[in-house]
């Protein structure tokens, strides 16, 4: 599903060059649930941005679902991102003045689905996360856990093969975090590949595999039994 070989990423200013990722290699198989941990500034977010095609890389190669992303135009990358990847952010990143239905609709619009198809997918996705009754609510009218579930519905609506989650429980209390984690595990059990960046060792342990990044390199690969 995800195959990174010797990826390098350097952030440069006039005076400083910061190596965010160096010789970074990682293979994630289809259907895997991988957690990514590491100290602040280790390169976790950079890895996630490159994996999500939000940021270019300076060296190495990256194949997503068998497609080499090197040399793709912006519109090709956007199309690939829209079709293959679902994003879940720590801060939910719902558009505040769109209701939940319209928020979930956003990636489907860029996919070019017709009205009926979009409606079906949105309703399915909201049902999956238990928010059917909240479709017409604005994000501000929902709790943090509900907002994150709405964000997960948005990520799922396009039926991507690959979910990228950046600290998905970082802004939630323990109960809500557990609910969201259970939801992710359920999604993974249905075949969706998940890569989750987290600080929480407890959550990281629930993934099938944990990758630790230190100073832009993969420091540890721990294989665990599926939860």
């Amino acid at each position: 599903m995800l195959k990174m070989e010797h990826i390098a990423k350097v952030f440069r200013t006039d005076t400083v060059a910061t190596h965010a990722l160096r010789d970074f290699s990682l293979h994630v198989k289809a259907g895997e649930f991988v957690s990514v941990t590491g100290p602040s500034g280790a390169g976790k977010t950079t890895f996630l941005n490159i994996a999500g095609l939000l940021e270019p890389f300076d060296g190495g190669s990256y194949q997503l679902d068998g497609i080499s992303v090197h040399g793709l135009s912006d519109s090709q990358r956007s199309k690939l991102r829209n079709e293959k990847i679902g994003f879940i952010f720590q801060g939910f990143n719902l558009i505040p003045d769109l209701n939940i239905f319209d928020n979930v609709d956003v990636p489907l619009r860029y996919r070019g689905f017709g009205r009926a198809e979009r409606k079906r997918r949105i309703e399915d996705a909201l049902a999956k996360v238990g928010l059917s009754a909240r479709a017409k609510h604005l994000p501000s009218q929902l709790s943090g856990g509900q907002q994150q579930r709405a964000a997960i519905a948005r990520a799922l609506a396009g039926e991507p093969a690959f979910l990228l989650a950046d600290e998905p429980t970082g802004n939630l209390d323990t109960t809500m975090a557990r609910q969201v984690m259970e939801l992710l595990e359920q999604i993974n059990s249905q075949g969706t590949t998940i890569v989750m960046v987290t600080h929480d060792p407890e959550l990281a342990r629930r993934a099938q595999r944990n990758i630790q990044i230190v100073d832009g390199e993969v420091a540890d690969l721990t294989l665990r039994q599926a939860v």
Binding site: G52, L54, D74, S75, S78, E83, V106, Y110, R111
Partner: peptide, 15 residues
């Protein structure tokens, strides 16, 4: 910031 979210969800620069 909304444009950033839309980009992440699949909007191209031209969109």
């Amino acid at each position: 910031s909304e444009a950033g979210v839309r980009r992440a969800l699949g909007a191209s620069r031209s969109a």
